[in-house]
Design a protein around this nucleic acid. Structure first.
Lengths: 336, 336
DNA sequence: AGCCCTCGAGAAATCGTTAACATAGTTTCG
DNA sequence: CGAAACTATGTTAACGATTTCTCGAGGGCT
């Protein structure tokens, strides 16, 4: 049916492995022979069968990235970083969307293992540790993206959310805010901890009603803001711990602030893509999504090549940005 | 190294093909034998090698979806539809992001053909017709998603953008608008045509300066709105022809309308996900993204199974929605 | 008794590549 | 000058599954 390497070999008048050598550039081939083979490939419109190659050579030239939320610009930006790095090496990337659901995650991973992908980049759910452990036992190259994993020494690439959260909280305190609400996601405990500890260090007592955790979506962001705003007395600042929540939360806050003389101060984990769409005055921590994607992938390739690497955690720093009154976000970095 | 079917067979005391029969449920197997085999699989933690299976059986149980913009909630929703339909049949989906760049598209497709995917769902760029033609020649199952293709009879699943655009334009006209601006994307000519023809049919002359085409991003949406608003006299309505543009455009319009006594009327191709984040008063055409994904995939499977299908175009209708003053969008459908 | 179907399972061929090994002519170098 | 090293190609054996063929036992028909 389809054109195979054998056909190409016959057409070019050479042996089959020679064709393979030309294609993969894997051994010496005479320039004339190479030309003949390339001509035959062109003429027959031959496309190599990756299945057969993978079966024999034991690698698929394929990675996978499992993200919790494909609709988040953070994750799509990570994907871009991963793809750029992978494609440059001739690899393809399988993208999977887990919705932070362990069952979905498991289903994906089963399919990926069946397909013998070479390596996995994953933002694991809270319950994925045993799964990760098993994967590593099976010898699958794994890098955890953007989320710290406890109880398992595994390569991780993330930004230092804790440190940024401290800076953001301190900034609000320095601005004189005394009732700082927090909204965030279940999985991002580090940011909540940073907020709590920074308030405590400053001798502030926090109103538990001002801390709201919820699933990561725009709608929830909006709801959580409305919930904390309804508290009496209302907060004088809000810390938004997640970029997806932020998109909804900022709109709610925009409407609320429009009707106040004294606006509610805002600190948020936000996103450079989202920033260019909507950016009210606030202090924001912008996570280096693209770089996280690239570094994760590089680390994965290093592992696959058995290169020695030092440490199993790569921590990138967020960009702290102060957005002033104008809509167009100022580009002055406030800290590293 | 890894556990193979042979190992399972030996462990279970049966022959290798029997294991295959148990796994694929492809022939009679005694209940006891089956139990033994399943136990062996469990014990050895065997995971089938899809490469080997695909090589022999000539199918990969893998589809691919190539979208122009992964950051658009429209396309991620399409993906959900595709995945639900595919996973239910034991297929996996390769997602690729082309950015509407023919070169990127070609690179992806090469990788997919190498990997011998069973079928392709694609939102082609404006220049993809020859590529599609070649793919079909090679026998690759193809379904075009959401975009009409001219000069080629190929399965297509899309919504009737033209009809909706007519309704939206008529609605603006009926509301008394006389200077209706249009912003949209290069690729979506049908909507622009509908707008032009409806205006012409109503005897309206259109100011060419009020028609702006640009690449599909939030920022551009915002810019295009600002451009047409700067026109003197300004438009009294804006037709936004794309959901991605709409996200940016609506914010710009929101700010503009806040400072006017007579607000600018809005008609937009929008998105149910985006709608729940931000929805000013307007008339919107909501495209059935999830259904588009599902129907495309079903059609693809029908083709792969050589089922007879009638026609090569499936056209779904958009939901026309009138969002009234309140932020929470009304759910009253205005037309089919 | 003879025939055909259902049920069950093994032997061997096969899918399209790459890896390992073999073979030789030609340089290079101590 | 002879051993090693490089260049260039062919032969053969995997890789890990599925498919086809074959064989048999048992049951229900004519």
């Amino acid at each position: 049916m389809a054109v195979t390497m054998k056909d190409v070999a016959e057409h070019a008048g050479v042996s089959l492995p020679t064709v393979s050598r030309v294609i993969n550039d894997t051994s010496y081939v005479n320039a004339e022979t190479r030309a003949k083979v390339l001509a035959a490939i062109e003429e027959l419109q031959y496309v190599p069968n990756q299945m057969a190659a993978s079966l024999r050579s034991n690698n698929t030239k394929t990675l996978a990235l499992l993200v919790p939320d494909i609709a988040s610009s953070f994750w799509t930006t990570v994907l871009r970083g991963v793809e750029d790095e992978a494609m440059a090496r001739g690899y393809h990337v399988f993208l999977g969307n887990t919705d932070d659901d362990p069952a979905k995650e498991a289903r994906y991973i089963d399919g990926l293992v069946r397909r013998r992908i070479d390596g996995l980049l994953i933002a694991p759910t809270a319950k994925s540790v045993p799964l990760l452990r098993r994967l590593r036992q099976q010898g699958m190259g794994c890098v955890v993206v953007h989320r710290p994993v406890s109880g398992l020494e595994i390569d991780t690439v993330r930004s230092d959310a804790y440190a940024s959260a401290v800076i953001l909280t301190q900034h609000l305190l320095a601005a004189g805010c005394r009732r700082i609400a927090f909204i965030g996601g279940e999985i991002e405990q580090g940011r909540l901890r940073a907020y709590r500890e920074t308030l405590a260090a400053a001798g502030q007592v926090l109103d538990p009603a001002l801390v709201r955790i919820g699933p990561l979506s725009e709608q929830v962001g909006e709801q959580l803001v409305n919930t904390v705003l309804a508290r009496n007395p209302p907060p004088d600042a809000i810390f938004i711990g997640n970029n997806r929540l932020a998109t909804g939360a900022l709109h709610a806050l925009g409407r609320a602030n429009a009707q106040r003389s004294e606006p509610i101060a805002i600190a948020a984990f936000y996103d450079s893509a989202a920033l260019s769409v909507y950016a009210p005055p606030m202090i924001a921590a912008i996570q280096p999504a693209y770089e996280i994607g690239r570094y994760s992938t590089r680390r994965l390739f290093d592992r696959l090549a058995n290169k020695p690497v030092d440490g199993h955690e790569i921590i990138l720093s967020n960009r702290i940005m102060i957005v002033s009154g104008a809509h167009t976000p100022s580009l002055e970095p406030a800290a590293g």
